[in-house]
């Protein structure tokens, strides 16, 4: 009987097309739609902060250079991973990540909690030539990051687009995005004070690349790396982690 039915089905182009669409849609709908409706999918984290414009620019450089191809940002719920990298990652930690950068391959180590683990200077040396600080490393050198000035004029547009997809940036943040990016990497300038005002007193405001007079792509990328895993304390509250949480960044 089913065979007879199928012989009929394969005589009808439209019928066949509709059947393929119907059969193929089920899995995706059942697995994806509930992720938006079940509350437990993403944990509560009232202390969750937003990326500053400089950190967002750094994140975009991380994406541009394809860092995600070799570094994951997702610590799995396995003993050795928690001991090696820190408390396992929670969904809430990437709730404002458009796109997520969980990654799928660790040619290099996981970076989900790399923030505050190394000094700025270490990161700058490492990105300039990884083998200067880690002789066995097979990571490419990114020497031009320290040379390239960071493009900041269009950051308000970036924040506005982020808000359009659901990240709660305020009008004030969007309007001052370019100024805040500049201020976060030039602590002695007038622009620096506004950053703490808008993004919290504990925002890291310093010359990440070691040069306080100009803002480079290196500033942005290091600023981003230094807040990884420090957007919220939630992971440290949820897990029996062996170590103390690092200083939170609000």
């Amino acid at each position: 009987m089913p065979e007879l039915f199928h012989r009929k089905l394969e005589r009808s182009t439209i019928g066949f097309v509709l059947a393929v669409i119907a059969v193929a849609s089920v899995g995706g709908i059942v697995e994806i739609a509930p992720l938006f409706t079940i509350d437990e999918t993403v944990e509560e984290a009232p202390d969750m902060r937003l990326y500053t414009p400089l950190e967002l620019a750094g994140r975009n450089i991380y994406i541009r250079e394809g860092c995600y191809a070799c570094h994951s940002q997702m610590i799995r719920t396995l003993r050795d991973e928690v001991e090696r990298y820190g408390p396992y990652s929670l969904a809430v930690e990437s709730r404002y990540d458009h796109p997520m950068l969980w990654g799928s391959k660790r040619t290099g180590p996981d970076l989900a909690r790399v923030g505050d683990k190394y000094s700025d200077l270490w990161h700058v040396s490492h990105l300039t030539n990884p083998r200067d600080v880690v002789p066995e490393s097979n990571m490419p050198a990114y020497r031009w990051l320290a040379r390239n000035p960071l493009q900041m004029e269009d950051l308000p547009l970036h924040l506005a687009a982020q808000r359009a997809v659901g990240v709660p940036y305020t009008d004030d943040m969007i309007e001052n995005a370019a100024k805040d990016a500049y201020g976060q990497a030039t602590p002695d300038s007038d622009a620096a004070s506004g950053v703490a005002e808008r993004y919290g007193e504990e925002t890291q405001i310093r010359a990440f690349d070691g040069v306080a007079t100009r803002v480079t792509e290196m500033d942005a990328l290091v600023a981003y790396l230094q807040i990884l895993g420090r957007m919220t304390d939630a992971a440290f509250e949820h897990t029996a982690a062996p170590q103390e949480p690092p200083e939170p960044v609000k």
């Binding site: 992720l35 809430v92 990437s94 796109p99 997520m100 269009d154 359009a164 997809v165």
Partner: peptide, 30 residues
Amino acid sequence: VNNIAVPVSIGHAKSYTVWAGVQDAMVQWW
């Protein structure tokens, strides 16, 4: 479905996907 995104502006190559975090991960690997 995977590529629904909001461009930074019509003149920018860059866009931000509408999916975030865990939902983005699921859509991406679906």
